[in-house]
Amino acid sequence: MEIKALFVILISTIFINNYVLSQMLGLCPFLGVSRKLDSALGMGLAVIFVMVMASFFTFLIYKYVLIPFDIAYLRTIAFILVIAGLVQFVEMVIENISPVLYHSLGIFLPLITTNCAVLGVAVLNTEAGFLNGNLGLLKAVVQGLGAGLGFTLALLLMAGIRERLEIADIPENLKGLPITFITAGLMAMAFLGFSGMKI
């Protein structure tokens, strides 16, 4: 039963409630880093990593620090500082362990602090009713993983399309952001198809 619940969370965060294309979270990096496929992949991996870590730590902090001390109203400030610290920490660790990885991921890490999808998943974890069931922490982490995977999927699709668009013949005034938004709209429409899915 619990396995099924986890699977449902994973599938619905990747496809049905895709963070970018249906909840409209994390649009800044979605538009900014989707010009090239390899940089999109790098950004996506970094986001998955940070989202899973952030889900883990923010959930623990919310459940075992903020709630018991009755200071849940400080959620926003606590989460954003945890995420900022976490990103900094991850950056330092990667730099020391694997310089190669750091060169491919490193430049994206500072951008992630202001990626609203990361704070979004942390906040949604506290509101999704994971707090009073068992396995709450695992569900939160799975939701973080799903959100990251969904974000990466959308980013990669977008990057693939935009690489093609570079050489396409587009009306002058549509170049740049407008055509990107039209593409995103069409992709969102396709993702709407998942919303009738029974799992």
Partner: peptide, 9 residues
Amino acid sequence: AEKPGYSGA
């Protein structure tokens, strides 16, 4: 009564 819908309970 509570049940999960599409997004959240």
